[in-house]
Nucleic acid binder design. Sequence first.
DNA 1: TAGCAGATACCTT
DNA 2: AAGGTATCTGCTA
Length: 189
Amino acid sequence: MSTSIPKVFAAQHNGKKFAILIDDNDRLVGSAFSSRGSESAAKHVARLAGKPMIIEQDHPLIKEMARLCEGEASSKNVNLDLERVSTFQRRVYEVLEKIPKGKVTTYGMIADAIDSGPRAVGTAVASNPWPPFVPCHRVVPASMTIGNYSMNGRLDSEGSNAKRELLQNEGVKFDGDRVSESCLWKPRA
DNA sequence: TAGCAGATACCTT
DNA sequence: AAGGTATCTGCTA
Protein backbone atom coordinates (compact mmCIF):
# COMPACT_ATOMS: atom_id res chain seq x y z
CA MET A 1 0.00 0.00 0.00
CA SER A 2 1.28 3.40 -0.92
CA THR A 3 0.91 6.32 1.44
CA SER A 4 0.58 9.32 -0.83
CA ILE A 5 -2.09 11.85 0.04
CA PRO A 6 -5.35 11.99 -1.90
CA LYS A 7 -5.49 14.29 -4.90
CA VAL A 8 -8.20 16.47 -6.35
CA PHE A 9 -8.03 17.04 -10.08
CA ALA A 10 -10.07 19.91 -11.46
CA ALA A 11 -10.62 21.07 -15.02
CA GLN A 12 -13.19 22.65 -17.30
CA HIS A 13 -14.90 21.30 -20.39
CA ASN A 14 -17.46 23.24 -22.43
CA GLY A 15 -18.01 25.80 -19.73
CA LYS A 16 -18.61 23.28 -16.98
CA LYS A 17 -16.31 22.66 -14.06
CA PHE A 18 -15.40 19.16 -13.09
CA ALA A 19 -13.55 17.76 -10.11
CA ILE A 20 -12.58 14.28 -8.95
CA LEU A 21 -10.93 13.00 -5.80
CA ILE A 22 -8.47 10.14 -6.19
CA ASP A 23 -7.13 8.23 -3.20
CA ASP A 24 -3.69 6.73 -2.66
CA ASN A 25 -4.71 3.51 -4.40
CA ASP A 26 -5.96 5.32 -7.50
CA ARG A 27 -9.54 4.73 -6.59
CA LEU A 28 -12.25 7.30 -7.17
CA VAL A 29 -13.47 8.64 -3.82
CA GLY A 30 -15.82 11.23 -5.21
CA SER A 31 -16.71 13.43 -8.15
CA ALA A 32 -18.60 16.67 -8.68
CA PHE A 33 -19.46 19.14 -11.40
CA SER A 34 -21.13 22.49 -11.71
CA SER A 35 -22.67 24.34 -14.59
CA ARG A 36 -22.26 27.82 -13.27
CA GLY A 37 -18.83 29.27 -12.85
CA SER A 38 -18.01 28.65 -9.24
CA GLU A 39 -15.20 26.80 -7.56
CA SER A 40 -17.68 24.69 -5.67
CA ALA A 41 -17.06 21.44 -7.52
CA ALA A 42 -13.45 21.18 -6.38
CA LYS A 43 -14.29 22.49 -2.92
CA HIS A 44 -17.14 20.08 -2.55
CA VAL A 45 -15.16 17.04 -3.56
CA ALA A 46 -12.23 18.09 -1.39
CA ARG A 47 -14.43 17.87 1.69
CA LEU A 48 -14.47 14.11 1.29
CA ALA A 49 -10.81 13.94 2.27
CA GLY A 50 -8.67 15.39 5.01
CA LYS A 51 -6.29 17.72 3.27
CA PRO A 52 -6.10 16.66 -0.33
CA MET A 53 -3.65 18.11 -2.77
CA ILE A 54 -5.56 20.28 -5.23
CA ILE A 55 -4.31 19.96 -8.77
CA GLU A 56 -5.81 22.27 -11.37
CA GLN A 57 -5.19 19.88 -14.18
CA ASP A 58 -7.13 17.63 -16.52
CA HIS A 59 -7.32 13.89 -16.02
CA PRO A 60 -8.60 10.98 -18.14
CA LEU A 61 -11.45 10.43 -15.73
CA ILE A 62 -12.48 14.05 -16.00
CA LYS A 63 -12.60 13.75 -19.76
CA GLU A 64 -14.73 10.67 -19.30
CA MET A 65 -17.00 12.62 -16.99
CA ALA A 66 -17.45 15.38 -19.50
CA ARG A 67 -18.39 12.84 -22.17
CA LEU A 68 -20.84 11.20 -19.80
CA CYS A 69 -22.54 14.53 -19.23
CA GLU A 70 -22.98 14.90 -22.98
CA GLY A 71 -24.44 11.42 -23.20
CA GLU A 72 -21.54 10.39 -25.40
CA ALA A 73 -20.27 7.53 -23.28
CA SER A 74 -21.50 4.85 -20.97
CA SER A 75 -19.87 4.60 -17.59
CA LYS A 76 -16.88 2.35 -17.92
CA ASN A 77 -15.15 0.36 -15.25
CA VAL A 78 -14.11 2.92 -12.73
CA ASN A 79 -12.43 1.87 -9.50
CA LEU A 80 -14.77 3.25 -6.86
CA ASP A 81 -13.74 3.57 -3.24
CA LEU A 82 -16.73 1.65 -1.93
CA GLU A 83 -15.37 1.34 1.58
CA ARG A 84 -16.56 4.64 2.84
CA VAL A 85 -20.24 4.25 1.98
CA SER A 86 -22.72 2.13 3.94
CA THR A 87 -23.86 -1.30 2.86
CA PHE A 88 -27.31 0.11 2.27
CA GLN A 89 -25.91 2.72 -0.08
CA ARG A 90 -24.03 -0.01 -1.93
CA ARG A 91 -27.28 -1.94 -2.39
CA VAL A 92 -28.93 1.14 -3.85
CA TYR A 93 -26.00 2.06 -6.11
CA GLU A 94 -25.90 -1.48 -7.43
CA VAL A 95 -29.38 -0.90 -8.82
CA LEU A 96 -28.48 2.51 -10.21
CA GLU A 97 -25.68 0.98 -12.27
CA LYS A 98 -28.21 -1.28 -13.98
CA ILE A 99 -30.50 1.49 -15.23
CA PRO A 100 -29.95 1.59 -18.99
CA LYS A 101 -28.90 4.82 -20.63
CA GLY A 102 -31.98 6.57 -21.97
CA LYS A 103 -34.21 5.17 -19.24
CA VAL A 104 -35.25 6.20 -15.75
CA THR A 105 -36.68 4.45 -12.73
CA THR A 106 -38.36 5.69 -9.55
CA TYR A 107 -37.40 5.80 -5.88
CA GLY A 108 -40.38 3.56 -5.09
CA MET A 109 -39.40 0.91 -7.65
CA ILE A 110 -35.87 0.75 -6.31
CA ALA A 111 -37.29 0.43 -2.81
CA ASP A 112 -39.47 -2.49 -3.89
CA ALA A 113 -36.54 -4.18 -5.58
CA ILE A 114 -34.33 -4.11 -2.49
CA ASP A 115 -37.06 -4.42 0.15
CA SER A 116 -36.67 -0.95 1.53
CA GLY A 117 -38.64 2.26 1.59
CA PRO A 118 -38.78 5.10 -0.96
CA ARG A 119 -37.62 7.80 1.41
CA ALA A 120 -34.66 5.78 2.57
CA VAL A 121 -33.73 5.19 -1.06
CA GLY A 122 -34.00 8.93 -1.59
CA THR A 123 -31.45 9.69 1.10
CA ALA A 124 -29.05 7.12 -0.28
CA VAL A 125 -29.40 8.40 -3.83
CA ALA A 126 -28.95 11.95 -2.59
CA SER A 127 -25.63 11.07 -1.02
CA ASN A 128 -24.15 9.46 -4.12
CA PRO A 129 -20.49 10.47 -4.08
CA TRP A 130 -19.89 9.60 -7.73
CA PRO A 131 -22.14 11.53 -10.09
CA PRO A 132 -22.49 10.95 -12.98
CA PHE A 133 -20.47 7.70 -12.96
CA VAL A 134 -23.10 6.21 -10.70
CA PRO A 135 -26.15 7.53 -12.55
CA CYS A 136 -28.31 8.92 -9.78
CA HIS A 137 -29.81 11.35 -12.28
CA ARG A 138 -31.79 8.43 -13.70
CA VAL A 139 -34.08 8.31 -10.67
CA VAL A 140 -37.30 10.34 -10.68
CA PRO A 141 -40.33 10.48 -8.36
CA ALA A 142 -43.40 8.36 -9.07
CA SER A 143 -45.04 11.42 -10.63
CA MET A 144 -42.43 11.13 -13.41
CA THR A 145 -41.58 14.80 -13.02
CA ILE A 146 -37.91 15.67 -13.03
CA GLY A 147 -37.58 15.72 -9.26
CA ASN A 148 -34.58 16.89 -7.32
CA TYR A 149 -30.86 16.90 -7.92
CA SER A 150 -28.35 18.44 -5.62
CA MET A 151 -25.15 19.92 -6.97
CA ASN A 152 -22.22 20.49 -4.66
CA GLY A 153 -24.41 20.20 -1.62
CA ARG A 154 -27.05 22.64 -2.78
CA LEU A 155 -30.57 21.56 -3.58
CA ASP A 156 -32.18 24.05 -5.92
CA SER A 157 -33.59 24.54 -9.39
CA GLU A 158 -30.13 24.64 -10.95
CA GLY A 159 -29.74 21.00 -10.03
CA SER A 160 -33.07 20.06 -11.52
CA ASN A 161 -32.15 21.81 -14.74
CA ALA A 162 -28.86 19.96 -14.88
CA LYS A 163 -30.63 16.67 -14.22
CA ARG A 164 -33.04 17.24 -17.06
CA GLU A 165 -30.21 18.17 -19.38
CA LEU A 166 -28.30 15.01 -18.49
CA LEU A 167 -31.35 12.88 -19.19
CA GLN A 168 -32.10 14.57 -22.48
CA ASN A 169 -28.51 14.12 -23.57
CA GLU A 170 -28.95 10.43 -22.90
CA GLY A 171 -32.02 10.28 -25.11
CA VAL A 172 -34.75 10.36 -22.48
CA LYS A 173 -37.97 11.76 -23.96
CA PHE A 174 -40.18 14.24 -22.15
CA ASP A 175 -43.89 14.84 -22.30
CA GLY A 176 -44.08 18.42 -21.08
CA ASP A 177 -42.50 18.41 -17.65
CA ARG A 178 -42.73 14.67 -17.26
CA VAL A 179 -40.58 11.83 -18.48
CA SER A 180 -42.55 9.88 -21.05
CA GLU A 181 -43.79 6.48 -19.91
CA SER A 182 -41.85 4.70 -22.64
CA CYS A 183 -38.60 5.61 -20.88
CA LEU A 184 -39.54 4.00 -17.58
CA TRP A 185 -37.43 1.03 -16.58
CA LYS A 186 -38.30 -1.22 -13.69
CA PRO A 187 -35.57 -2.94 -11.70
CA ARG A 188 -36.00 -6.64 -11.14
CA ALA A 189 -36.20 -7.80 -7.56
C1' DT B 1 -55.96 16.88 -12.40
C1' DA B 2 -53.20 19.73 -9.54
C1' DG B 3 -51.97 20.71 -4.84
C1' DC B 4 -51.41 19.47 -0.16
C1' DA B 5 -51.24 17.25 4.21
C1' DG B 6 -50.54 13.04 6.80
C1' DA B 7 -48.57 8.78 7.11
C1' DT B 8 -45.19 5.28 6.89
C1' DA B 9 -41.05 3.04 6.41
C1' DC B 10 -36.35 2.87 7.34
C1' DC B 11 -31.63 4.52 7.36
C1' DT B 12 -28.15 7.12 10.22
C1' DT B 13 -25.84 8.75 14.29
C1' DA C 1 -33.63 6.26 20.90
C1' DA C 2 -34.40 10.13 18.17
C1' DG C 3 -34.08 12.67 13.96
C1' DG C 4 -34.27 13.29 9.19
C1' DT C 5 -35.78 12.33 4.41
C1' DA C 6 -33.86 13.92 -3.71
C1' DT C 7 -41.29 9.75 -1.26
C1' DC C 8 -46.10 8.10 -1.75
C1' DT C 9 -51.04 8.11 -1.59
C1' DG C 10 -55.45 9.71 -1.12
C1' DC C 11 -58.14 13.39 -0.13
C1' DT C 12 -59.82 17.81 -1.52
C1' DA C 13 -61.57 21.21 -4.85
